[in-house]
Simulated scan of single mutants.
Amino acid sequence: MFPDRQRIAAGLLQELKELGEAEPRLLYRRVARYFPQLTNEDLSARSRDGRSVWRRRVQDAKALLMARGEVENRGRRWAITEKGRRRAEAEEMPIQLVLSALQEEGPAPSHEELQRMLAEIGRLLGKHAEVEAQRYDVAWKESPHAPRYSHVFEVQVHGRLESALAKLKQAHDAQRSRPFLVMADTRGVWQVQEALAPYLAGPFHEIASVTQVLTAEEVVRLYRALSSVAALLKRLQDG
Rank of each mutant, 00 (worst) to 15 (best):
Ala195Cys: 12
Thr215Glu: 07
Arg25Ser: 10
Val210Gln: 06
Glu105Asn: 09
Leu118Pro: 02
Ser228Arg: 15
Ser100Phe: 07
Gln237His: 14
Arg5Tyr: 04
Arg74Asp: 02
Gly239His: 09
Asp238Thr: 13
Ala90Pro: 10
Ser177Glu: 10
Tyr136Gln: 05
Lys234Leu: 02
Gly11Pro: 01
Glu162Thr: 14
Lys234Asn: 13
Ile95Phe: 12
Thr211His: 03
Ala197Lys: 14
Ala101Ile: 09
Val31Ala: 04
His145Leu: 11
Ala171Arg: 02
Arg29Asn: 06
Glu72His: 13
Leu124Val: 07
His145Gln: 11
Arg57Met: 09
Ala133Phe: 02
Val98Cys: 09
Pro107Ser: 07
Glu194Gln: 10
Leu161Ala: 02
Phe180Asn: 06
Glu82Trp: 05
Ala195Tyr: 15
Val138Asp: 04
Asp60Tyr: 00
Arg68Ile: 14
Gly159His: 06
Ala63Gly: 07
Leu125Ile: 08
Asp42Trp: 11
Ala119Asp: 03
Pro109Glu: 03
Val213Gln: 00
Pro203Asn: 15
Ile207Met: 11
Leu124Asp: 08
Gln191Met: 14
Gln193Asp: 11
Val157Asn: 08
Ala164Thr: 11
Leu12Met: 12
Ala101Leu: 15
Pro109Val: 05
Leu125Glu: 12
Arg74Cys: 12
Tyr199Gly: 04
Gln134Asn: 11
Pro3Tyr: 03
Met183Lys: 08
Pro36Met: 09
Glu104Asp: 03
Arg116Gly: 07
Glu15Arg: 07
Leu118Thr: 09
Leu200Gly: 02
Leu97Cys: 07
Pro147Ala: 05
Pro179Met: 10
Thr186Glu: 13
Met66Gln: 11
Phe2Asp: 02
Gln170Thr: 14
Glu21Asp: 13
Glu132Gly: 03
Met117Asn: 00
Tyr34Asp: 01
Val152Phe: 02
Glu132Trp: 03
Ala225Gly: 12
Ala195Pro: 04
Glu130Trp: 00
Ala174Glu: 03
Leu97Arg: 14
Ala166Phe: 15
Arg87Asn: 05
Val58Lys: 04
Glu70Tyr: 11
Val131Gly: 06
Glu92Arg: 12
Gln212Asp: 13
Gly75Ile: 10
